[in-house]
Amino acid sequence: MDMKLNVQSSPHVRDSISTRLIMLDVIIAMVPAYVWGVLKFGVHAAIVVIVAIIAAILSETLYNMVMRRPNTVDDLSCVVTGMILGLNMPPEVPLFVPIVGSVFAIIIVKMIFGGLGQNFMNPALAGRCFCLISFAGFMNNFTSTLSVDVYSSATPLMLLKSGVEFNVLDTIFGNTPGTIGEISGVCLLIGALYLAVKKVIDLRIPLLYIATFAICIAILSGRATDVNFIVAHIFSGGLIFGAFFMATDYATSPITPFGKVIYGVLLGVLTSIFRLYGKSGESVSYMILMGNLLVPLIESITMPVAFGKEGK
């Protein structure tokens, strides 16, 4: 017999899922928000996101070349990072900002720590916060010269903080100023639903995050009966984007089932406190980063009990 047979250890069949397909799903899920942002803010917004993605791809390629490692861009995770970062930029931002953000996110936060899955902070978020600190002026300028129906340059979050009344429906559907991808709650929820149906994300983290956040806001602000106020808080300041697309990042959220519960609740509490009492409006980004740092601790106290080992 001269047949040549492949020999591997079991199992001999695998699910068709792959890292690349997961990343592709995340990209698809962000397309509605991207399209809405481009429709609202125009061509420059479209270019900002594309530039962020290209910068991310080039940074990863370059890093791998310098370090003489096989290129890893085909797992598409750098595209996801670039896209999240781009969608979190103000629409009129100069193009060097997303480039700097992407380079920082990929090289410093992701690749230096060992690449995909090894980073302890969400790269896109860290990149965004880096830009927020370094280029505060550009990052907080939401004046749009192109949009026609946006009635002021203040984001809903700014209005909330200054106590000005505004139309809540506009925040839900995205007729407001803001970063390119965060403004339309509806578009983001469509994407989130897609991810949930494809079982890419576990809904425990985002749902508990938003629910805890809403409850805390209601209690802490003393305006528990003001539904408009609470809904406005939920749909502003990038909370929907953060909850579904950033807090669910696999590498920087707990892997244990109960850990996910704690993490979601913790983010909700932290974000609401920071949102109400903090000076900066950026509670979502900073609090998710803070949550990232607590993940190893949360995991270590929530290890699941093995089957048949209960009560021992």
Binding site: N6, H12, I22, Q118, Y250, I255, P257, A306
Partner: peptide, 30 residues
């Protein structure tokens, strides 16, 4: 055809699918 012959190993992304699959309630990636 060996269904595993073009399989490509990538970094663990900590997605937790193994945790959800384990009938013994373990954390396989760890």
């Amino acid at each position: 055809k060996d269904p595993l012959s073009n399989m490509k190993e990538t970094n663990c992304i900590n997605c937790g699918r193994c945790v959800k699959a384990c009938p013994i309630n373990l954390v396989p990636t760890m």
